[in-house]
Structure formats: structure tokens, C-alpha cells
Design a binder for these strands. Structure first.
Length: 480
DNA sequence: ATGTAC
């Protein structure tokens, strides 16, 4: 039996204090290419493209506007794109893409964030959905819980006591090194990038502010917050899928913290928080920070591969069949790309996912060159997730789409106003097994997120991507 | 996001 759509029953919760109409909305003009455009004195003449439905626009927090203006404030910005899952971040919105000039522009820190390289990995099976009985959903969660550490502070279970030298080889060599040395069975062609290049003369700032060395013992651990592992039913194939969301743990966080303090020391008058931190090419830390992003990105990729292997073992134990990797991709990075309108640019994706359609030069010679690479979009653990394929229209959004449903309720608001018992009962009724005790982290529950179908619908309507697979949650694992 | 602030 195919599970029914769950997102339709996600209750709309009105956000208190949001005025019915905000003046900045009146400055938006509709562009015939399928987005709203904001280009004013306040944006310094920089074009901001907003991919939003009127309803999603209506519910935006007031401070998102201020954060959009922050996003236009970095030196050498050429374009800012807002995705339909946008919500308030720290200084720039989560759900934005910032293009800066590759030769003279800034590489900005906030638009990469603390969780450098955070992203998704998805796998599919040929196991019919009916095999996932309630008992097996719980068994799957138990088997995964045995193999993967979850929650803040969680440590590595499979690369314990890693020597610093070997850790360095991993964060320098990325998936190329990891797969060759540890996991030759993993298909390396199914990652967004196998390895971000790290200069030989760059050194991890061991012992620096942020202490990135705490990441050494964390390879293969999930983390907390919105990181998760999920067993899913695919509506198109009628088979089981699995999806993982995780990032660079204490390593990326430590690197981001370290370089933020260096940026602050350089421009104490201007840079007061990570979100406003940036380096221009004349900074002595410019190349060094880019190396840190590469190393953090490599950690995140390998972290996802390790967890995927463990989840695949759990899956095989419970369902007696293998998982096949679909794709691995980040939504928190800065990468050098060639853009038809803007030339060579640093593309910062903060809660946004790369979306190269078929025919994009960067895909030439890969298995994705005709149809584009898969794009992995999680919904909440009470809602559907999606695997998309980019379309040529994605050139208007800097070859990017959203990264999820987008938060709608703040964690604090959720803790205060959501009814835990009622929510846990809803999950039980929907047959969604949460962890091994059905305890739903309340600040991560379904109502905390926008309806994924509405958000993805906006991306589809704008011609950025098409839906390849829609996935309903069966079992959800979250730390913390 | 994060050995959950300075």
C-alpha cells in the first residue's frame, strides 16, 4: 500500500506579529522569466531575483528583507537569488545564492555558514514499500542507531583513533582518497564533487580559535539540529529510498570560527559577526579561507559517504537487499563557476542547491550530461522529500534551486506553542516511526516547516527543475 | 550548524 500524501495535513500556523503588508513588497516587479525582481537604491542597484509564490512571499519574516540587503553588500556582488524556502538566517537569509566577481569580488563567510559543505545523500532500493512493515521500520531505526552516532558531540564509530596525518589525507583527498582507501565499492561518479582542491602549503589551523581538531573524532557522525536519516517510500517506483542530511561537524564549525576571527581582526569596524565576514583577493587570508572551505567540504562529503555505508548495512540487515547510491550534493558552499550572464563568479549557496541542467558544460563527459544531475530536496520528517532534475530555466537562478522546505516556525516558538502529545500521535497515526522511542524533536516537527510540495511547486512552475521522484517518510532518525 | 555565549 502506498502511503498517502502527508504534507496536506501539515497545519498552517500563523506567525504572530507579521504585518499584512510590507512596503518593500511594493518594490518588487514581476519578471516574465518567472520570478520577482528587486533592484533599488537599497540593493545598491544589484539585481535580486526572488523565486516565490505570492503566498510564500506573504509569510516572510520582516528581517528577511534586511538580510537580502546584507546579501547585496559584499564587494563585487553581481546577483542575489532568493529560493522559495527562504527564511531568516543570522545575517543573510537561508535560501539564497550570491554571485561575486571571481577576480575582484569577495568570498563571503556568512553565505557559506558554520556548517561548511552541509548537504544530502540519497539512495534507492528495489524493495517494495509494502515490505516496510511497522516492525521493520522500527528495526531499521534500531540498526541505524547502533551504527551511526547522532546528536551534538557524537563521535566516530568506524574511524576511531584516526591519526592526524590520516585525517589530513582524508580532508585533502576527499571522496577520491576515502573511496580508494576505505570503500572501493562506493560509486564515486555519483557525487557533486569528489574532491575540493586544497593547496599543498595550506595547513589546518590546529589549535586556532574554533579548534577544528575536534572534528578528527567525528567522521561518520550525524550531528544535531536538522540533520537526519530517513527511510522513505518512493511514489513513482513504489520502492524504498533512504536519505541522509549532515555536514562537516566540529571540523567545519571550527574552521569557520577560526577564519571569522581573522576576518574580524582585519576589518574590526565592519565585520562584527560571521554573516558579514568576507575576504577580498588582497587579503592574506583570502586563499587560506578558500582552502578551509575545500577541506570542510571534503570532510562533509566523506562524512556523508561513511554514514551512507552504515545506513546501507542497516538497510540490508533489515530488508535483505542492497541500496544503490542516487547522488550526493551540498547546499552550503562557495564554488567557482562560469555563468552565461555574469562570467566567472564565486557562487555562494547558503541553503541552496546546485542545479546544472543537461548540456551544462560542467557536466560534459559525466553520466549527467544529457539530463542534468539529481537535486536532493528534503522536506520535514512529516512531509514529502523530492529528487529533482534541473531544467534549462535554471540559468535564471544561477543554476540553483532551494535546499528544503524552509523553516516556518522558530525553534523557540515551536517549543512554546506546539503540543508534543498531539504531534507524536499524528506521527504514530501516519505510521512514521521516529527514532526508537517515537519521541519527536518538537523544534523539528512537521509544522516547523513550510509545505515541501508548495515550495518545490514554485521551483517547478518557474521552470528551474522537474520532479523525478517524490518520497514519503516512513521512519525518521534525528539526534538531539 | 556548534564540546549551544563573552
Amino acid at each position: 500500500m502506498m502511503p498517502r500524501s502527508s504534507h496536506g495535513s501539515t497545519p498552517r500556523v500563523s506567525v504572530p506579529g507579521a504585518p499584512a503588508r510590507r512596503p518593500w513588497q511594493d518594490q518588487l516587479r514581476r519578471d516574465p522569466r518567472g520570478f520577482f525582481c528587486l533592484q533599488t537604491e537599497a540593493t545598491r542597484g544589484i539585481e535580486v531575483r526572488l523565486f516565490l509564490t505570492p503566498a510564500l512571499l506573504e509569510e516572510l519574516d520582516d528581517d528577511v528583507y534586511g538580510q537580502i540587503l546584507n546579501a547585496t553588500s559584499f564587494p563585487g556582488v553581481k546577483l542575489v537569488v532568493i529560493t522559495p524556502d527562504v527564511h531568516s538566517g543570522y545575517g543573510v537569509p537561508v535560501g539564497c545564492i550570491i554571485l561575486t566577481d571571481a577576480e575582484r569580488g569577495a568570498v563571503a563567510m556568512g553565505p557559506v555558514g558554520y556548517d561548511i559543505g552541509c548537504g544530502m545523500i540519497s539512495a534507492r532500493s528495489q524493495v517494495p514499500v509494502a515490505e516496510a512493515t511497522p516492525e521493520r521500520r522500527l528495526a531499521f531505526n534500531r540498526e541505524v542507531t547502533r551504527r551511526v552516532a547522532m546528536g551534538p558531540g557524537g563521535g566516530s564509530r568506524h574511524l576511531r583513533d584516526l591519526e592526524q596525518d590520516e585525517f589530513l589525507r582524508i580532508v585533502r583527498g576527499g571522496a577520491d582518497y576515502y573511496v580508494e582507501r576505505y570503500a572501493p565499492q562506493v560509486d564515486r561518479t555519483r557525487t557533486e564533487r569528489n574532491r575540493f582542491p586544497v593547496d599543498d602549503d595550506w595547513e589546518v589551523p590546529w589549535g586556532g580559535r574554533g579548534r577544528p581538531e575536534r572534528g578528527i573524532g567525528q567522521l561518520g557522525s550525524l550531528g544535531g539540529g536538522n540533520h537526519f536519516i530517513e527511510l522513505q517510500a518512493c511514489l513513482q517506483t513504489g520502492t524504498l529510498f533512504v536519505q541522509v542530511h549532515t555536514g562537516s561537524r566540529g571540523f567545519g564549525h571550527g574552521l569557520a570560527t577560526n577564519y571569522f576571527h581573522l576576518a574580524k581582526a582585519e576589518k574590526p569596524d565592519r565585520i562584527t559577526q560571521l554573516d558579514l565576514g568576507f575576504f577580498t583577493p588582497d587579503s592574506r587570508h583570502y586563499r587560506s579561507y578558500l582552502n578551509a572551505v575545500s577541506a570542510g567540504g571534503n570532510f562533509a562529503i566523506v562524512n556523508r559517504l561513511i554514514i551512507y555505508e552504515q545506513v546501507a548495512r542497516a538497510f540490508t540487515d533489515v530488508f535483505g537487499a542492497p541500496l544503490d547510491l542516487v547522488y550526493e550534493i551540498s547546499h552550503n558552499l562557495v564554488q567557482l563557476e562560469e555563468h552565461p550572464e555574469f562570467g566567472r563568479v564565486w557562487v555562494h549557496r547558503k541553503g541552496a542547491t546546485r542545479a546544472f541542467p543537461g548540456g551544462h558544460p560542467a557536466l560534459t563527459g559525466t553520466m549527467w550530461e544529457r539530463e542534468g544531475h539529481p537535486v536532493l530536496i528534503p522536506g520535514s520528517n512529516f512531509d514529502h522529500s523530492f529528487i529533482l532534475r534541473p531544467l534549462p530555466g535554471a540559468r535564471h537562478s544561477a543554476y540553483s534551486v532551494n535546499h528544503g522546505a524552509g523553516r516556518r516556525l522558530s525553534r523557540a516558538f515551536a517549543e512554546r506553542h506546539l503540543d508534543r502529545r498531539a504531534i507524536e500521535e499524528e506521527y504514530r497515526h501516519a505510521g512514521i516511526v521516529v527514532n526508537t522511542n517515537q519521541r519527536v524533536p518538537i523544534d523539528e516537527a512537521g509544522p516547523c516547516y513550510k509545505p515541501a510540495g508548495e515550495v518545490v511547486g514554485c521551483v517547478v512552475a518557474a521552470g528551474l527543475a522537474r520532479i523525478e521522484y517524490e518520497l514519503a517518510p516512513l521512519a525518521s532518525l534525528k539526534g538531539d
